[in-house]
């Protein structure tokens, strides 16, 4: 087995079993905010215990190990065909070891061949950069939270959402209201303003690669992120939709240009079981350091 395959299996294992530090800190913070003796507090305590247990046992935090999304920043000249084949092998192996559920179903026949490898699985986004090393980021995004994602085409009269930032705010908050606890909150929103239907969603997912406590360098977007986070946490939806103070842990907004005729706001909801990890690979494809 190649060194790259070993590195990718380890990346998958850690992504599946260990919550990144920034997310764990945010969950702990929210636990202290909820009222003692409420079911919201019970849920967060159980979540905290689950995080510890998954890490200790090196087993999936959540049984839905989700869509397997690789984001690869690679030097010019990387053989993407060979890389992708190795990544598929790594996914097969991680599935055999139980780091990933047998989670990929033929949409036409309903057959689950148990390998997690097939059209669209795993998904690999390659991007070239002018650096000598490869960075691999991985998000495992479960179906429950993916199902509550939403795409809005502004204007929407029923929401009084026009083609401006105030309209974007209304759309994003509607997504939070509609999601309630179904996406396994407290959640994290990745949002894209603009793009087309495909690039909008993709860019919204890319926002989930950001650290929870970073700030958006664009002042208008930073303001929108903080505002949506604060407002959502005033709605009383709470962990799991049980009621409570923590509905969201973070909001991350990106922008793409759009066509004059289109104005999409794409919202990807990430569950509290925010499986996101990344590595920098050395020249021999061994893991040089962890990115989260």
């Amino acid at each position: 087995m190649s060194c790259l395959q070993d590195s990718l299996v380890e990346l998958i294992r850690r992504a599946s079993a260990e919550i990144p530090d920034d997310v764990q800190r945010a969950i702990l913070g929210s636990l202290h905010q909820e009222k003692q003796g409420t079911i919201a507090e019970s849920a967060l305590k159980l979540i905290e215990r689950n995080i510890e247990l998954a890490k200790a046992k090196s087993q999936p935090i959540c049984q839905d190990t989700g869509s397997i999304l690789f984001f690869v920043d690679a030097p010019v000249g990387l053989d993407q065909i060979a890389w992708e084949e190795t990544a598929r092998e790594a996914v097969r192996q991680a599935t055999q070891r139980g780091y990933l559920r047998q989670n990929s179903v033929d949409s036409l026949t309903g057959v689950n061949d148990g390998t997690n490898v097939g059209p669209g699985s795993p998904t690999i986004h390659f991007h070239q950069h002018r650096a000598p090393h490869t960075e691999v980021r991985l998000v495992l995004k479960g179906g429950g939270c993916e199902n509550v994602g939403a795409q809005y085409a502004l204007p929407i009269e029923a929401l009084k959402a026009n083609r401006d930032l105030a309209g974007c705010r209304r759309a994003v908050l509607d997504a939070v209201l509609q999601a309630q606890g179904k996406g396994c909150g407290p959640g994290i929103l990745g949002v894209c303003i603009g793009g087309d239907r495909a690039t909008g969603y993709e860019h919204s997912k890319r926002q989930l690669l950001r650290l929870l406590d970073d700030r958006n360098p664009v002042p208008a977007l930073d303001e929108l992120e903080q505002d949506v986070l604060k407002t959502a946490n005033e709605l009383g939806i709470g962990p799991m939709g049980f009621g409570g103070k923590t509905t969201l842990l973070g909001v991350k907004v990106g922008v793409l240009n759009r066509l004059p005729a289109s104005f999409f706001v794409s919202v990807s909801y990430m569950c509290w079981a925010y499986r996101r990890q990344g590595v920098t690979l050395g020249a021999d494809d061994s893991i040089r350091n962890w990115l989260y």
Binding site: N50, C62, G142, C184, C271
Partner: peptide
């Protein structure tokens, strides 16, 4: 209602 995501517990 069980706690979503709490697959280990």
């Amino acid at each position: 209602h069980a706690v979503g995501g709490a697959a280990q517990v």
